[in-house]
Nucleic acid binder design. Structure first.
Lengths: 97, 97
DNA sequence: TTTGACTTGTCAATATTTGTCTAATGTAAG
DNA sequence: CTTACATTAGACAAATATTGACAAGTCAAA
């Protein structure tokens, strides 16, 4: 499930309209629509506003959002597993020091 | 070791000057200097040209470069491990389907 | 002090991202 | 069918970010 699908599910569960949520976020309805459909990437502040509007845990939502961006970066690559291993090694080294 | 440090080590092992490598890459020496020092991010084509100039395996070098970019995205975050787990789940789901 | 390697700061040109507007499409109710 | 409303698509200017180049700077060895 992509970030967009994820937030759409939540919005629909809460029976809120795009218009309502977008208004709370202070953005155009069309933009939120695009974010949900994955044709636009939300900015960090927008994710935060969205979490507030949907009464969700902000950092959890940010995690999904960031994970999505990383998946997007990797999508086209061949050796994704290898790349993620390198990332983990680097992260581990960062936290050790 | 960051991407910049990594390519600098290779360049120095081969006893090449910034000027020489940059020239082969068709970029300014100053720009290569910045890339090595991490104050500028190389573009994909530049990494490829660099691999050629240093006679390194292109896809391996691109892996280090991409990994570095991801680390950079994550550096400031709290729950990096959690985020990486989500990424892996998403990737696995992608490859299954 | 001169030379050569490298670094730094700045800047215009270029490219990308952003948000909004308008028009289109979809859909349920009357 | 018409109306009313929700959502989506496309196009655009404005805002931001990235890029490469240049000039001036530091530094170390000769």
């Amino acid at each position: 499930m992509t970030f967009g699908e994820y937030i759409r599910v939540i919005r629909e569960e809460k029976q809120l309209l795009l218009r309502e949520v977008a208004s709370q976020m202070n953005i155009d309805t069309a933009l939120l629509s695009k974010i949900e459909r994955g044709t636009r990437i939300a900015r960090k502040e927008q994710v935060e506003a969205l979490a507030k509007a949907l009464k969700q845990n902000k950092s959890e939502m940010l995690q999904y959002w960031l994970a999505d961006k990383i998946v997007f970066m990797l999508k086209e690559e061949k050796n994704i597993t290898e790349i993620l291993k390198i990332v983990e090694q680097k992260i581990n080294r960062l936290s050790k020091k």
